[in-house]
């Protein structure tokens, strides 16, 4: 096990590149995901304030039924 982590004496270089790759890719994924979710929430909030005409009609129809 210790041998595995030592990577033949190149631990810093090997683990360093994998760690760096993981950090950058995870950060990119998280930032993109968070942006998408935030905007979707904003859109939902705006829609709730002023529903689209189509949706308003649907709601009215539902209320009548």
């Amino acid at each position: 096990m210790a041998e595995f982590f030592a990577m033949g004496g190149y631990a810093g270089y090997v683990w360093g590149s994998y760690l760096l790759t993981a950090i950058i890719l995870l950060a990119l994924f998280t930032v993109s995901q968070r942006n998408l979710r935030r905007r979707q929430r904003e859109l939902e909030a705006l829609r709730a304030l002023a529903p689209h005409r189509r949706e308003r009609r649907r709601v009215e129809k539902e209320e009548r039924a």
Partner: peptide, 27 residues
Amino acid sequence: FFFIVVLIQRMRGELVAARLRALGRLS
């Protein structure tokens, strides 16, 4: 696969942002 997933994520985010801008302009 990672590229495709993040690409779709970012494009969807941008499309929602465009709709937000359009709604903002409308209001």
